[in-house]
Simulated scan of single mutants.
Amino acid sequence: MQLQPQNIQELTNQSSLIASPKLEVKNLFKSYQGNNKQKLVILQDINFQIFSHEFICLLGTSGCGKSTLLNIIAGLLPPSSGQVIVDQQIVTGRPGSDRGMVFQGYTLYPWLTVAQNVAFGLQFQKMSKAERRERVSYFLNVVGLLNFANNYPKQLSGGMKQRVAIARALANEPAVLLMDEPFGALDAQTKEQMQQFLLELWKQTHVTVLMITHDVEEAIYLSQRIYVMSASPGQIKAEVNIPLPENRELDIKLSTDFVEIKRRVINLLRRDSLSTLVEE
């Protein structure tokens, strides 16, 4: 069978889409004017790519600028220079439905029910009330909270509140789900339960995830790749591939492979801390 020019062009376009990153950060800088009128550089020459359906973690110590970087990607802060590109479209500096955001705090409206919280962003889209109800029910079922649709946030545990926040972000069907240390306020046991939940949710929905954390074990357990950030100014110091099976139980944290990856990542972070102390 001989391909016609139109078929060749379609195949070329499909190949280009497959190869294109879902999210790309290019030559990004962020600086502020200090009290002494000197420029304070927070982020310096940040470059990385995330492809469709990947789960990627940005890992760094406190003060490395990872939350600032995530807020820039979300459109909550403008970069000083450089670009953020989602689905080959440059982010223009304002939040968009293509980027769902889940914060460390629960950020739920206490006067709205669980279902109303999930539906909040949908009211700004052109869809009928029936479509909104159907989508809210679908995502509440995905996160296991359909039976709590009429409850208020004060009636939920911390882990349940974060599941509502995740459902709200997913309901808008974002190209990329951005997560800012979403389990940082939870106790250790609930945190591990939420890590398992998030991994299953990612496999079920195939959403592309960029999550920031300072927890080394959390980053290794959840992600396929880790970008390790250094501080003062914040830079991408290393990219670490995570060659663990996609189906992961909590016991994998005790495996030899997991411990070896953890040792490598900790050494990267430790060398950065020592370099900072020497410079100071």
Rank of each mutant, 00 (worst) to 15 (best):
L77R: 05
S80L: 13
R264A: 04
Q195Y: 02
L76Y: 07
E260I: 06
D215S: 06
N147V: 10
A119K: 03
D87M: 00
Q83F: 09
M179Q: 01
L244I: 05
A74M: 14
L199A: 10
D251E: 08
G82D: 01
E173A: 15
Q224W: 05
E239Q: 11
T208D: 03
T92E: 08
E24P: 06
A149G: 04
N117Y: 13
A74Y: 14
V259C: 05
I8Q: 05
S157G: 02
I166N: 02
A19M: 07
R94I: 14
V41G: 00
A115R: 14
G184A: 11
R133T: 10
I56D: 07
P78L: 13
N151P: 01
R163V: 01
S232H: 15
Q155T: 05
N27C: 06
L108R: 10
Q38D: 01
G93I: 02
P110G: 09
L11C: 14
K237M: 14
V278E: 07
A171E: 02
G234F: 07
E239H: 01
V114H: 04
Y227V: 15
L17Q: 11
L269K: 03
T92C: 04
T205C: 11
Q193S: 07
G144C: 00
Q162H: 02
N27V: 06
M160H: 03
Q125D: 09
V143Y: 00
T61L: 12
S62E: 10
N151R: 05
Q44A: 12
V143G: 00
K22C: 08
S97G: 06
E279Q: 05
L17W: 11
A171Y: 02
G100A: 04
Q88N: 04
G63C: 15
Q89L: 02
N36G: 10
D45G: 06
F103V: 08
I236K: 03
S97K: 13
S16L: 09
T92S: 10
I242N: 00
G93D: 00
E24F: 05
V216Y: 12
Y106T: 08
L146K: 09
F51M: 15
T92R: 10
M101F: 15
A130S: 14
L199R: 14
Q89G: 00
V207Q: 13
Q123N: 08
V265H: 06
S157R: 01
I242P: 00
F197V: 03
Q2R: 04
E260Q: 08
K262P: 09
P21R: 11
Q195F: 02
L140M: 09
L268V: 01
Q196D: 11
R271G: 08
T12L: 13
L70N: 05
Q6L: 11
S67A: 13
S97H: 12
S97L: 10
Q88T: 00
